[in-house]
């Protein structure tokens, strides 16, 4: 029989998980060139919600509806529009050939990119992670402990540890929804950018351009390869082109499996704290094991 049993109900386990979940956050960014446009993004990612279900035979922790909050999320598009020149037409042709008087020629969209469109997409993506996890009891041999006695390591905060990780058996990322407002955000941003770019032009030039292009917003959408479904376009850009959703999935799996234990304690464990002139009483904990059943998690071990 094990010397120690420590049992956490599903409710207590949920408390442990929420503590872990709330400590996870990451920022990421990337950029790339996609033909006629470039894009870069910067995202902050954290987790909220989620429900826990403990399973027996096999021992598993099921986590579902773990909300992935991508906030802030800024996407910056750089678009290289085809150069358009307006004017330059001959008003008074020369009878000897050539032209005596021409309208001035105005060329626009000569730069690359011509317009930069910053989009604040914070909080518009609703996504979830679900998965099944084993609980892995692993022994962390603290490298900073090397050359120290256990008591020296205690006083310098370099003790070895028993750590308990959620080791993924399977894990999924579900993109639930991209808010419909993304279309309006994009169109408004394009119009704002175009206004900023063309605002200095004479009215007749802007009218001519609009006539020529049949709506600049549509041109920009076309260049971005947005056909109908802007949600799908954004999902492809972030998820496929940038691999943001895979990044999130890998990040969550790695943090849970390797970096953030759901629970840990020092080994040897200070069963009596230090007192004036007295070292702490450290007891080694051996043979640590984890068992999960339908209602609780049980950690067992022996005192060495």
């Amino acid at each position: 029989m094990a010397h120690i049993n420590l049992a956490a109900s599903e409710k207590a386990f949920k408390g442990l998980f929420e503590n872990l979940r709330d400590s996870l956050a990451v920022s990421t960014s990337d950029s790339g060139s996609f033909g006629p446009f470039t894009a870069s993004y910067s995202a902050g990612i954290r987790l909220e919600g989620g429900s826990i279900d403990l399973k027996d035979s096999p021992d598993e922790v099921h986590i579902s509806e773990l909300d992935v909050v991508i906030d802030p999320l800024t996407l910056t598009l750089g678009i290289d529009l085809p150069e358009i020149c307006v004017g330059g037409w001959c008003i008074i042709p020369s009878p000897f050939g050539g032209c005596w008087v021409r309208l001035p020629e105005i060329c626009i969209f000569s730069a690359n990119p011509d317009i930069t469109i910053p989009l604040d997409l914070s909080g518009i993506i609703t996504s979830e992670i679900s998965g099944a996890f084993d609980i892995d009891a692993s022994y962390f041999t603290n490298p900073a402990h090397a050359g120290m006695s256990d008591h020296q390591a205690f006083f310098s905060g370099n003790q070895h540890e028993w750590q308990f990780f959620l080791d993924p058996i399977w894990i999924d990322f579900d993109l639930i929804d991209i808010s419909d407002t993304v279309g309006n955000i994009l169109d408004s941003a394009i119009e704002f950018a175009i206004d900023g770019l063309l605002g200095w032009l004479p009215g007749w030039v802007r009218d001519a351009l609009s006539w020529l292009l049949g709506g600049i917003v549509d041109v920009v959408r076309g260049l971005l390869d947005i056909v109908d479904d802007i949600d799908e376009w954004l999902s492809d850009l972030l998820g496929v082109s940038f691999g943001l959703f895979d990044f999130i999935l890998t990040w969550v799996a790695d943090e849970l499996a390797k970096n953030f234990p759901i629970f840990k304690f020092e080994d040897p464990y200070p069963i009596l704290a230090p007192a004036p002139g007295q070292i702490p009483v450290l007891v080694p904990v051996l043979n640590v094991d984890v068992d999960i059943d339908e209602t609780e998690l049980i950690i067992s071990g022996d005192i060495g």
């Binding site: 029989m1 094990a2 010397h3 120690i4 049993n5 420590l6 049992a7 956490a8 109900s9 409710k11 207590a12 408390g15 069963i271 009483v281 007891v283 059943d293 209602t295 609780e296 049980i298 022996d302 005192i303 060495g304």
Partner: peptide, 21 residues
């Protein structure tokens, strides 16, 4: 019967372990 039937957390120390302590 689950160890946490009546509480959120439960800890037990067997006398053998306690004697080690």
């Amino acid at each position: 019967m689950p160890l946490t039937d009546h509480s959120d957390l439960f800890a037990s120390f067997h006398e053998d372990g306690f004697n080690h302590i």
